[in-house]
Nucleic acid binder design. Structure first.
Lengths: 200, 200
DNA sequence: ATATAATGGTAATTTCAATTACCATACTCA
DNA sequence: TGAGTATGGTAATTGAAATTACCATTATAT
């Protein structure tokens, strides 16, 4: 049955993603994956061509999920501060998720090996979110609520503060991961500084 | 002569650092290094114990250089804006240097393998710079020039904006590296937003 | 100057992991 | 149901790279 084949592929993708995100692509062997899923190496070569093919499918799949979430973001020009805060909470939430951290970790590790996949991830993920926010900022400039400024750049700066607050500890092994609740104050502070910084 | 031994070690360190920064630790073989320096593998095993030992020396050496530079930063409480700008230019300059980018790249790649070295890098590099800035901000708060706020956090936010402006393109393969001249406007914009955001 | 120790080079050795070969089994469709 | 095809499992094969063995050479110190 085709159904079983799909289940098997899914199972492999799930297991491989966990391993790749945890240990990186290069440090995960085909055998490691099979040890989790059962079956045999042939399942991977039949289903995905080779190890790199498996990675491609995983990155595509996970970045598509992220980009889908980003598209759902809603902003309200009549409530600038709340909108920014909600956006920032969503962002923080997303950057804290293990799959996202794993995705970033892996892409940082393997960007030299797969430059195209890294670019695709960037465009469907971080860039899309930045565009979404910059559009909102542009509307608020048109409104007269904000000073005219290069909107994409402002959006990038805002997002950098949020993301780095969460990721710098992870990627340099310099602090324990925290929960969104613990972060809330910091996120609010970011919004406050940013808003003071850019509003009329 | 001991002199020759040191020269040989230095030569190996230089060549290995270039390769590690360019291709990463795991993807550089001992033979790759020897191909550049001449001599034989034994030089590496005699001089550094093994491949990891070589990496340790490199990370120590390069992070010490960075931390030395950071210590030289000068601030002037009487000229807040210029001080921040000068600090930001220095920061940008530093984040753009190939050795620094290489160091970050490699540490991101291998943090799982060498968590202690990653932490050491963080403490001697980014953390030290952040402390330096936060001390200055604290002074300006005491002065009454800035609103009271958690100073280390403010400093982190400021640095995140500068660093991410430069590094996000590199690490996700999403844009060409730029020069400090091209960045100057963006750095000025960061300072402007930040200062508006935090000053009384 | 020569016995002893350190150093360097070449060629194993070992390990690990991706990929492939080959055979047995299970499925498909007439 | 049975010929032909696809799939899965086990066991090669291959290649890369770290580490080590061993011998030759050079340096050191009395």
């Amino acid at each position: 049955m085709t159904k079983n084949k799909i289940n098997k592929k899914d199972k492999i993708i799930k297991a491989a993603a966990d391993l790749f995100f945890e240990k990186g692509f290069s440090n995960t062997s085909i055998d490691d994956i099979i040890k989790v899923t059962g079956g045999s190496k042939r399942d991977i070569y039949n289903g995905f061509g080779n190890k790199s093919g498996l990675l491609s499918e995983i990155i595509r799949l996970y970045t598509d999920r992220v980009s889908h979430e980003v598209r759902l973001e809603r902003f309200d020009e009549n409530d600038l501060e709340s909108s920014l805060k909600e956006f920032a909470y969503g962002l923080a939430h997303s950057y804290m998720r293990p799959e996202i951290i794993g995705l970033y970790t892996m892409i940082y590790k393997e960007v030299k090996l797969f430059p195209d996949l890294a670019l695709e991830f960037y465009e469907k993920g971080p860039m899309l979110g930045t565009l979404k926010l910059s559009e909102f900022l542009q509307n608020c400039m048109n409104n007269g609520q904000l000073n005219k400024s290069p909107n994409y750049k402002l959006a990038s700066f805002f997002i950098s503060m949020i993301r780095d607050r969460i990721h710098s500890g992870v990627f340099l092994n310099s602090s324990e991961p925290v929960s969104l609740e613990e972060l809330k104050e910091d996120v609010d502070l970011v919004v406050e500084i940013f808003l003071n910084g850019v509003k009329k």
